[in-house]
């Protein structure tokens, strides 16, 4: 036993040594992306596409949230920060202080469709109704022309860029010329991801939630808002009231010809646009 163990340890040491000597040989180009879970699907699909095209490049995608993406970019922890919202003042200030100049690249447009269970007869809501539902003023579907069921409100986690977009576009409104921010009601459920929202809605007949446009499929029903159905055209034309651009931030404009540059301009290529559209987002050139 003892002998064998020693031999094993020796072998392991030799193996490690060998690895170490090989290590010096080739350096791999790495591209680290960090940030929003909403931009995640685009980044992941781009990453796979890019790695297949350029075998020597290693692209890593973290989906830890927009705020974390900004932090990573500022700390030089990543080369591209995916964000579903624009950088905040204090993040910009911190970046500049550390010598990082964030440059935004809009990679796609996204709408925030409101999702309900397909068995829900309600076809559409107004922004006011949505606000009332999420703030708790309306708590039963029958108040908006639906069946007599208590509404289960599902929101994205308060930390997400999606939540901030929703909160800014829907929950904030003018009352006598003053901006009032309504709070989401106490009993609302919070889900950490877009996929989670869809899962909650498709399994809960009385639920309403919101997620990225890419997460609409046959298992849920997207509602018309102010009479406009969320689609690629209505989002880019601005008809659909709850839409936003999705960003990738880099430190300065990337050097032309670099992998970072190729990556953040991938969405402009024909293939890139097809990928964006296939995942369910709206390509930026879709006018």
């Amino acid at each position: 036993m003892n002998m064998r163990l020693k031999r094993l340890i020796m072998a392991a040491l030799v193996a490690t040594g060998l690895c170490t000597s090989v290590a010096v040989a080739g350096e791999v180009d790495t591209l680290v992306l960090d940030g929003s879970t909403t931009v995640g699907p685009i980044a992941k699909a781009f990453a796979e596409y890019y790695m297949a095209k350029h075998p020597g490049v290693n692209v890593t995608v973290n989906e830890s949230g927009s705020g974390n993406g900004a932090k990573s970019l500022i700390n030089s922890g990543c080369s591209i920060a995916n964000m579903s919202r624009f950088m905040k003042d204090n993040e910009f200030a911190a970046a500049v202080e550390k010598g990082v100049m964030p440059v935004a690249h809009v990679v796609a447009m996204d709408g925030l469709p409101f999702l309900v269970h397909p068995s829900n007869p309600v076809k559409g809501l107004t922004v006011q109704q949505v606000r009332a539902i999420f703030s708790g003023a309306i708590s039963n579907w029958k108040e908006v022309g639906g069946p007599d069921r208590e509404i289960v409100v599902v929101s994205r986690d308060t930390n997400s860029g999606t939540y901030e977009t929703f909160h800014g576009l829907v929950m904030t409104h003018d009352v006598d010329g003053e901006k009032v921010k309504e709070k989401i009601k106490d009993g609302a459920e919070y889900v950490g991801s877009n996929g989670g929202i869809r899962a909650r809605v498709q399994s809960t007949p009385a639920a309403i939630g919101y997620a990225g446009l890419g997460f609409v499929d046959k298992t849920v029903k997207a509602l018309e808002v102010n009479g406009v159905y969320p689609s690629g055209q209505t989002v880019t034309s601005g008809l659909y009231p709850v839409s936003r651009p999705l960003f990738m931030f880099t430190n300065g404009y990337p050097k032309l010809g670099s992998h970072i540059h190729a990556f953040v301009t991938l969405h402009l290529s024909e293939q890139g646009q097809e990928i964006v559209e296939d995942i369910g987002f709206v390509p930026v050139t879709h006018y």
Partner: peptide
């Protein structure tokens, strides 16, 4: 919602730098 889940879920979006 629990403490642990809040930490795990919110850490990503908290703006660390500032």
């Amino acid at each position: 919602r629990t403490l642990t889940a809040t930490i795990a879920g919110d850490m990503g979006e908290a703006d660390h730098v500032t």
